[in-house]
Design a binder for these strands. Structure first.
Lengths: 127, 127
DNA sequence: GCTAAATATACCTTGACACGTATATGCTCT
DNA sequence: AGAGCATATACGTGTCAAGGTATATTTAGC
């Protein structure tokens, strides 16, 4: 329940958020569009509201829920550090492919203990 | 274990990812920097690798883990829909404040059942 | 006031997962 | 070959959260 990330780890909650991005919705509307039981919707909305993802206003017996931007912006902020990495990684990938271009010694197995530029691909790895 | 979002919902895994953004690291290095037990690190790395967040190469007895961009880009892609909302929301916020200012004919929403300018706020609302 | 609609909450059960402890696997060096 | 380091896995345990069922609360309309 703690972090923003735990909140959006739940698929139904993500669905609700995606729904609300177009416009505010009542609980019943969400319930119908997502085809999930009302209590489930209400409970997820409770979590989302407590976490600041949504806010609600009263319309007769209905409650209209709408999105609030801050928590998702927090996720966005966390992602920023990796965006920098992606750009940098394009280069790294290119260099990598360049090196692969010349040959691929499938045999090498033993090497000196010194590490460093010394890389090798192990088949067993990426399981 | 399914979605990308569940993977990053775990704080230690996020810490590992943030660590790896600067450069590749061995398990032992991660262990020391994050001060978490080795088995914990290994298990989280296993999850991260299965989910495609990282890949590893063998360096003697060590394993060097490095970041892979795709899964986090998936998160980024999901966030896109909300970024559009943030920009649009500036306007919405403005309209909202305008209405509170008591005029600005922004075409009243008028429920089908006309409801009066519903005076008091509701107690239990924003929790 | 009574009934039906819309929504929220309480309680319970179940399953997933994170962690610790112990052990296995693999590699290097002597 | 054997010792020691680095990493991975197996197993048992506790916790926590999601979903279901039942019920409470609020409101509109008669």
């Amino acid at each position: 329940m703690g972090s923003v990330f735990e909140i959006i780890s739940e698929p139904n909650r993500r669905a609700i958020l995606s729904l609300l991005v177009s416009s505010q919705q009542s609980v019943g509307e969400i319930e119908r569009q997502l085809r999930m039981p009302q209590t489930t919707v209400s409970k997820h909305l409770r979590v989302l509201r407590d976490a600041g993802f949504v806010e609600s206003t009263v319309d007769a017996q209905r409650r209209l829920y709408r999105l609030k931007p801050e928590p998702l912006q927090e996720v966005d902020a966390w992602l920023r550090q990796f965006r920098r990495f992606w750009s940098a990684h394009v280069d790294a990938l290119e260099r990598h492919l360049d090196r692969m271009g010349q040959n691929t010694p499938t045999r090498r197995k033993t090497r000196k203990k010194q590490r460093g530029p010394n890389r090798e691909h192990h088949k067993g790895e990426t399981k």
